[in-house]
Design a binder for these strands. Sequence first.
DNA 1: AAATATATGTGAAAAAAATCACTATGCTCC
DNA 2: GGAGCATAGTGATTTTTTTCACATATATTT
Lengths: 221, 221
Amino acid sequence: MSIKRIPQVVIQRLPRYYRYLGDLLSRGITRISSGELSRRMGVTASQIRQDLNHFGGFGQQGYGYNVETLYVEIGKILGQDQEYRVIIIGAGNLGHAVANYTNYKKQGYRVMALFDSNKELVGKVVQDSLIYSIEDLPEYLREHRTDIAVLTIPKDGALDVVETLVEGGIQAIWNFASVDVPLPNSQVVVENVHLSDGLRVLTYRLKELREQKEHLQERGL
Amino acid sequence: MSIKRIPQVVIQRLPRYYRYLGDLLSRGITRISSGELSRRMGVTASQIRQDLNHFGGFGQQGYGYNVETLYVEIGKILGQDQEYRVIIIGAGNLGHAVANYTNYKKQGYRVMALFDSNKELVGKVVQDSLIYSIEDLPEYLREHRTDIAVLTIPKDGALDVVETLVEGGIQAIWNFASVDVPLPNSQVVVENVHLSDGLRVLTYRLKELREQKEHLQERGL
DNA sequence: AAATATATGTGAAAAAAATCACTATGCTCC
DNA sequence: GGAGCATAGTGATTTTTTTCACATATATTT
């Protein structure tokens, strides 16, 4: 109902709700209350209700939420009611992993092609998709409508590839190259993934945990 | 100086500062001001200064920050002054990718072994590390001090493996299995990675972008 | 059919995070 | 070595996010 902008933090929480609801759905659970969902997810019920309310009332007082309805509605918000054509630039292990992962269980993403600069890989097939030479990318983009490009290449060539992609009309880039891709212009959206960031946060918390332990030991516990 | 707890959001931003500083360092830039760094990173200078101040004054008025000092200091905060022994559970594409990625350029992480349930992979070598049978995991853990376990397996067996890991004394789990691992107890830290969450946020923003475009077209622009 | 229990939606309050704006310090250049 | 400039550190303010708490609506039970 509201014209008010949806806060970014809320958007970032939606995929997690979506996962949990999908899980409930596959287990045959048809109804869920914010309280029960909050217990399972480890967040507050209040936050769940407030988040969902940004998009309108999906629930019913005294009853809760219908799992399927809520799942579908959040899916729509996230754009999961459409199919996206995906290409993957970089057919190394990570490219393969993403190809597997993305095609998995028909989630609305279709990997159409992979590209690599290694001539030995060109012509091979991954998950029903062909690996092309990176040199064929401009031509491919001219001939095939493509929604999302995934970058699973080392950082060195990454920004050049981005230029090619943007010139070829790509509107969304999922970037795993270890370099931040700045927004080339307002006609493109970019999601920069830095796996190592998560690993470093983990290390921080491990350090913290160990320090805590030491403190306890010092006090003879 | 402070005993005050560091906000989680600040911790999550540190790895990004760390990356940018590492990049500056490798390009021979020895000094940087919060203003200049803010321009490069696309955040406010104020936020940078405030974030860093949680850990004490690393800068100097009228000069800025010494890139190397700041890099090293943030590294220490993140626990990058130590080496971590890593094992990878799941030697598929993602496991391989993480093995490559984690060992890269001697970043303080050493991949010691991989484990897989596929007998055909057992005995092979990835990045100087041997692939073991998953059945050997308990024994391995008894004999080798290990800091971090990475889970790159499908979600089905994931929680069982976590149990084995925790019983074996693992304190940190970096989980790529498509299921949230709840904190088994307060002696373990877990970082759940859901690649698809980022993809869905990207899709949301792509949808938004396209809707915006449509609106503009309707108004004849 | 009434009574009771449940659980949403939401305005208000509280807490957290980000930004502002200024002070004081040390650098740089003349 | 002094003047002016640049910039960190930081208290105050603003904005954003989260949580609280309750009125209302629906379901369920007796």
